[in-house]
Simulated assay, not measured.
Amino acid sequence: MRFSVLASGSSGNAVYVETDEHAFLVDAGLSGRKMEELLVSIDRSMKKLSGILVTHEHSDHIKGLGVLARKYNVPIYANAKTWMAMEHLIGKISIDQKYHFDMESVKTFGSLDIQSFAVSHDAADPMFYVFHENGRKLVLITDTGYVSDRMKGYIKGGDSYVFESNHDVGMLQMCRYPWSIKRRILSDVGHVSNEDAAVAMSEVVEQKPTRIYLSHLSKDNNMKDLARMSVTQTLESCGIVTGEFINLYDTDANKSTQLVTV
């Protein structure tokens, strides 16, 4: 199993996951053209996709979805409430491309099992995914106001994580956002901070080689160096030293990460 974080941030999100038999996008939050360019940058093509898995209907996760679905006739997977919330946003999609992926269920594609789980975000029915193949586990978890014990049960023991580290609380409190926006981000249906993300990580990572990609960083209220420093310090305060088994990696809003094996 291999993956690349094609883009991650306030302006758009997408992750590519493949096995020898199948290839998937999780979300398509940039324009169709930009999504094509990002796949080309890792030497992959939209024409080879087995499907696009949707997490929720916010524009930074579905901006290019309709265009790509129509151009490449690719199957789209989402739960029923997400389909209802996004249908008027993505344009007409052929009925034979619409697939339901129920919350907290598993779909199998050859050697790959994809498991969905609920997160806490202000969308219709947001969910993220865990990919299992040959005893290896890739976890995607962003767009959640907190990480519950139930979520931790799904994501514990991953070999690689794409983990939200959205904001620095101090920067958010001092920024020019209206208080209503700040309150939403800080709420249980908003986004997790650097420190809260790290505390959750400390409760799910195991003492084995693990890659953690810090993702969905706010362009206004976070910085890569700050996120890495905050997560590192918080993990260390929880007794986990990075750089030995646990390694942190950056993501970018406009550039894909290297395609790596889980």
Score class of each variant (00 low, 15 high):
I114C: 01
S215T: 00
V130K: 05
D250S: 08
V15G: 02
D250L: 02
H191E: 14
E164V: 00
D168P: 09
S215L: 02
G158N: 09
V67L: 15
H216V: 06
M171S: 10
I246D: 02
V241Y: 14
F245W: 13
L112P: 08
H61V: 03
G190D: 01
W179C: 15
E18Q: 05
K48S: 15
K81T: 06
Y213F: 04
S8G: 00
S165Q: 04
S4C: 06
G158M: 06
V262K: 08
K47I: 13
E203M: 05
M201C: 06
V26M: 08
L39G: 07
L25C: 06
V17P: 07
V199C: 05
R70A: 11
M223W: 15
E203F: 06
Y72Q: 05
E164S: 06
E133K: 11
V40I: 15
F24E: 09
S41A: 09
H167L: 08
F131S: 01
V189E: 13
M201V: 04
R2E: 10
S230L: 12
K156W: 14
V17R: 05
I240Q: 05
T251W: 01
R136L: 15
M151A: 02
E195D: 11
V162R: 02
L25K: 03
G135Q: 09
G145A: 01
S160G: 10
R44C: 11
G153N: 10
T242W: 04
V74H: 08
L89D: 12
D102K: 05
I141D: 00
K219A: 15
A227K: 02
E133P: 10
F163G: 00
I76Y: 08
V205D: 02
V162K: 01
P178W: 01
S31L: 09
E21A: 13
A69Y: 08
T19Y: 12
L65T: 09
G110H: 03
G66Q: 10
H88T: 15
S11F: 14
D43F: 11
F101Q: 01
Y213P: 00
G158F: 06
D122S: 10
R150S: 09
K107V: 12
E164R: 03
G190N: 03
A14M: 03
G32H: 05
D96R: 08
L49K: 07
S160K: 09
K47E: 14
L68A: 09
Y146M: 07
